[in-house]
Design a protein around this nucleic acid. Structure first.
Length: 460
RNA sequence: GUCCCCUUCGUCUAGCCUGGUCCAGGACACUGGCCUUUCACGCCAGCGACACGGGUUCGAAUCCCGUAGGGGACGCCA
């Protein structure tokens, strides 16, 4: 039997990390089994569903590299199917009309809780035939009256619940719209979903849904209930996938990090998307909830900053630099900057921060550094250095390096006396990559100009 | 209240099914050191956990029972 899985978010908000992780596990399972990954939008919430959220979810999935094979399928397009199934169950006597009012139900619920009983519908209309004329009604499904229901969950193992815990829940509201627990089953059955992989907040629902499959004459799929992610506060992770993209995270890193929330493969931490689809399996999915940890995400991202080809980093970096008002192209010179700076930044945003001096000479000189390193007595050496750099045949790190060594030898100066003033002139501070690389990564005219301007700082 | 799920370093986790090789391994973070023209990277080291209590056993993180704590569900929301 071929594997067909679906990710079924409601379009009432952007795709956040918790849902993205659920989508990812569905996607990875489909890929690892050669199956089909389907996107279904649960858009039956008239009040809150919005098309723009659908677009946002699709965009986020594309960015993460897990575009669906089928869909999006919209539930609102399938209302006729749902009503038809309700009618069918009614005719077959597997469902019935209930004329209780919401007020009556609410009163019963409160009383049950007050008496310490489980709030459950009494089932009073299950066998009644004295249906009032013209009164509003809901349709309820008949749950089995005795026995237990057991599912063999891919994550949780065997879980059994006594049907005594279940009541005849509403499948069609008095306004004629179907309810969630009914609709998911109709959809999953009709779309021939083989594996339902979702958050374990749905585990209890599953026991309500299994009898619906049976009533519909369908075989329940295999279930896999993933533990939820804790600590998804505004700050920590309930932000949208796009927020992470805008914060400068790489999609590979976010996917890598999310995959490790609840899944592992020995001691391995870094996985390429290809490795993930090869190695993913429910045998290695844990049952306990995990926490979203920004520090670890940052580390994974910093690893990916180093692993991606430098020109790819440059390409993805461009919009971040443009946001800061720098007009750049993803050309060789930007690639050179990315190559030089990338292991000093955990995100593309940080990369911009640590690299601004390449794009603007409008920076402050670090006063303490100037005080310490810009000594007037080194002027002749630095001037000589600038001259020789200007005359260099080739503008490479090695060539620049030999100039520094020659000047250092001739003036009998330690390299620091040349390197630090160079750094201050080019960047404003004394922390930067190796000076030779730094100088060579700059456009030569720009480097010379800044060094000449830096000469002014030598005045005592 | 009732039912379901969960519980190894601060965090993510390996180990648990098939008890001994685990005085519990890796990673992030943190601390210290090394490298070095600065900073960063990198490398090395350190810190740090089997929720608790019973049992089974020669032996338990691993098996059983209980307790506590956390999460979820119980809707004419999804």
């Amino acid at each position: 039997m071929s594997v067909r899985v679906r990710f079924a978010p409601s379009n009432t908000g952007h795709l956040h990390i918790g849902n993205a992780r659920t989508a990812l596990f569905n996607y990875l399972y489909a890929r690892s089994e050669g199956g089909t990954f389907i996107l279904r939008i649960e858009d039956t919430d008239r009040e809150r569903s919005r098309d723009e959220f659908t677009d946002s979810i699709v965009e986020a999935m594309n960015w993460l590299g897990m575009s669906p094979d089928e869909g999006p399928v919209f539930q609102t397009d399938r209302m006729d199917l749902y009503r038809q199934k309700v009618d069918q169950l009614l005719e077959e006597g597997k469902a019935y009309r209930c004329y209780c009012t919401p007020e009556e139900l609410e009163a019963q619920r409160e009383q049950a809780i007050a008496e310490g009983r489980k709030p459950k519908y009494s089932g009073e209309w299950r066998d009644r035939t004295d249906h009032p004329e013209d009164a509003p009604y809901t349709v309820r499904i008949k749950m089995p009256l005795e026995g237990t229901i057991t599912i063999d969950d891919m994550v949780q193992g065997e879980v059994t619940v006594d049907v005594d815990e279940l009541d005849d829940f509403i499948i069609l509201r008095s306004d004629g719209t179907p309810t969630y627990n009914f609709v998911v089953v109709v959809d999953d059955a009709s779309m021939e979903i083989s594996h339902v992989i979702r958050g374990d907040d749905h585990l209890n629902n599953t026991f309500r849904q299994v009898p619906v499959y049976h009533a519909l004459g369908a075989t329940p799929p295999t279930f896999g209930h993933l533990p939820l992610i804790d600590g998804l506060s505004k700050r920590a992770g309930s932000a949208s996938v796009q927020d992470y993209r805008d914060d400068g995270y790489l999609s590979e890193a976010l996917v890598n990090y999310m995959s490790r929330l609840g899944w592992s493969h020995g001691d391995q931490e870094i996985f390429t998307p290809e490795e993930l689809t090869d190695l993913f399996g429910f045998d290695s999915v844990g049952r306990s909830p995990s926490n979203f940890d920004r520090d670890k995400l940052n580390w994974v991202n910093s690893e990916w900053m180093k692993r991606l080809p430098a020109d790819e980093v440059a390409r993805r970096w461009v919009p971040f630099l443009e946001d800061r008002g720098f007009s750049v192209d993803a050309d060789d010179s930007l690639t050179a900057v990315a190559e030089l700076m990338r292991d000093r930044a955990a995100t593309l945003v940080e990369l911009s921060e640590v690299s601004t001096y390449f794009f603007s000479d409008d920076f402050e000189y670090d006063e303490a550094a100037v005080e310490k390193w810009m000594k007037a007595q080194n002027r002749p050496a630095i001037e000589n250095l600038i001259e020789r750099l200007a005359a260099l045949d080739e503008w490479t790190s090695d060539a620049v390096g030999s100039v520094y060594r020659e000047v250092g030898d001739e003036f009998d100066l330690g390299l620091g006396n040349l390197a630090q003033p160079t750094r201050i002139s080019l960047t404003g501070s004394t922390s930067s990559p190796s000076v030779f690389d730094l100088v060579a990564t700059f456009d030569r005219d720009e480097a010379i100009e800044r060094m000449q301007r830096g000469l002014q700082l030598l005045e005592q």
